[in-house]
Computed example of a mutant assay.
Amino acid sequence: MAKDGVTVNSLLPGFHATERLRSLRGGDWEQVAQEIPAGRVGDPAEFGAFVAFLCSEQAGFVTGAAIPVDGGEYAGLL
């Protein structure tokens, strides 16, 4: 598909300040932020900006990637 200009990527979101997270965690962003190496909960607009970038011409050579957008929360194979 890349030959035809179609790229396929996967974004792996962490905790972002959404209504869903509020319903699951009671809106205590400070407690949730303690679990995230960046020290804060993500802004949904940050996630949206990353999505927009991947949909742009500037990201046309990015394909087959699984990209965490989680403030460093995913520790990998440690």
Rank of each mutant, 00 (worst) to 15 (best):
M1T: 12
M1S: 14
M1L: 12
M1G: 12
A2L: 12
A2F: 12
K3Y: 02
K3S: 13
G5F: 05
V6H: 05
T7I: 05
V8C: 14
V8P: 00
N9I: 06
S10F: 04
S10N: 13
L11T: 07
L12F: 02
L12D: 04
P13D: 08
P13Q: 10
G14M: 09
F15W: 13
H16I: 10
H16C: 05
A17S: 13
A17K: 14
T18L: 09
T18V: 07
E19G: 09
L21I: 11
L21G: 03
R22P: 02
S23F: 00
L24I: 14
R25Y: 14
G27P: 05
D28L: 08
D28F: 08
D28T: 11
W29Q: 12
W29N: 11
E30Q: 15
E30V: 11
Q31N: 12
Q31W: 04
V32I: 15
V32T: 14
V32N: 08
V32Y: 07
A33N: 11
A33M: 09
Q34I: 02
Q34M: 09
I36F: 08
I36R: 08
A38I: 15
A38S: 15
A38M: 15
G39S: 10
G39C: 10
R40L: 09
R40T: 13
V41K: 01
G42E: 07
D43V: 05
D43S: 05
P44K: 04
P44S: 03
E46S: 06
A49P: 00
A49H: 10
F50S: 06
V51P: 01
V51N: 03
V51F: 06
V51G: 03
V51I: 15
A52W: 01
F53D: 04
L54D: 04
L54I: 03
L54N: 04
C55N: 07
C55I: 00
C55Y: 01
S56F: 02
S56Q: 00
E57C: 01
Q58P: 00
Q58V: 04
Q58L: 06
A59L: 00
A59Y: 01
G60W: 01
F61T: 04
V62S: 05
V62F: 13
T63S: 15
T63E: 02
T63G: 02
G64E: 06
A65T: 12
A65C: 10
A66Y: 06
I67M: 12
V69K: 05
D70W: 10
G71Q: 10
G71L: 12
G72A: 08
E73M: 12
Y74F: 13
Y74H: 13
A75N: 11
G76N: 07
G76T: 03
L77G: 11
L78S: 12
L78K: 10
L78P: 15
L78Y: 11
